[in-house]
């Protein structure tokens, strides 16, 4: 499943970008770190035999979504975000503790299952095959997703039109 060295370097970059995203005071910086993180994950997708997904990741996430984020950040002038830590005493501590518990649990779980061999065959992940799977096996969820997007569009319209009215 790829080169371990490469994996580790990428992992360090991904985790570092994620942590920086988390701790940055400036929201724009956070967004940029997150883009970096997404990009690294796109690389992982390529490594994992998912080139199409990697492209989608770059265009949709790193492109469209993060642009939207940046746009809103700048629109609202919220670059200098308020405090990092939780408003309540103990919130941060508890969160870190729970994060440790979560990671510890996974580590323990990995220890239990031990090493596992990867499948020897390789799936056909061409866009064509993905489309076949999508429209054969998941046609109903696909339609539902379409409805979801439609609802989102209508919702956005309602909220923005209210803003217009209010102004």
């Amino acid at each position: 499943m790829g080169n371990a060295i490469l994996f580790l370097i990428l992992a360090v970059i991904a985790i570092g970008a994620a942590i920086l995203m988390l701790v940055s005071k400036n929201a724009v910086h956070s967004a940029l770190y997150l883009i970096l993180n997404f990009a690294v994950i796109a690389v992982y997708y390529i490594l994992l035999n998912a080139p199409f997904l990697a492209m989608v990741q770059i265009t949709v996430y790193a492109g469209a979504i993060m642009v939207l984020f940046l746009f809103v950040i700048m629109l609202l002038g919220a670059e200098e975000s308020s405090g990092v830590l939780g408003t309540r005493r103990g919130q941060l501590t508890t969160a870190l503790l729970l994060g440790a518990v979560l990671i510890g649990s996974f580590v323990a779980a990995l220890g239990q299952i031990g090493g596992s061999a990867a499948s020897s065959s390789v799936a056909d992940t061409t866009p064509r095959n993905l489309a076949i799977i999508l429209f054969e096996s998941y046609v109903f969820p696909f339609e539902v997703t379409g409805v979801l997007l439609l609802v989102a569009v209508v919702g956005l319209y309602v909220m923005s039109s209210r803003l217009v009215k209010k102004d």
């Binding site: 990092v84 729970l98 994060g99 990671i103 996974f106 090493g115």
Partner: peptide
């Protein structure tokens, strides 16, 4: 397992972000 570990770490960082940030 490596991916699981990476994914877990990233997930936890995300969760911590949700929990501790106010923005």
């Amino acid at each position: 397992e490596w991916y699981i570990a990476l994914s877990t770490i990233l997930f936890t960082i995300g969760a911590l972000g949700v929990l501790v940030r106010r923005n």
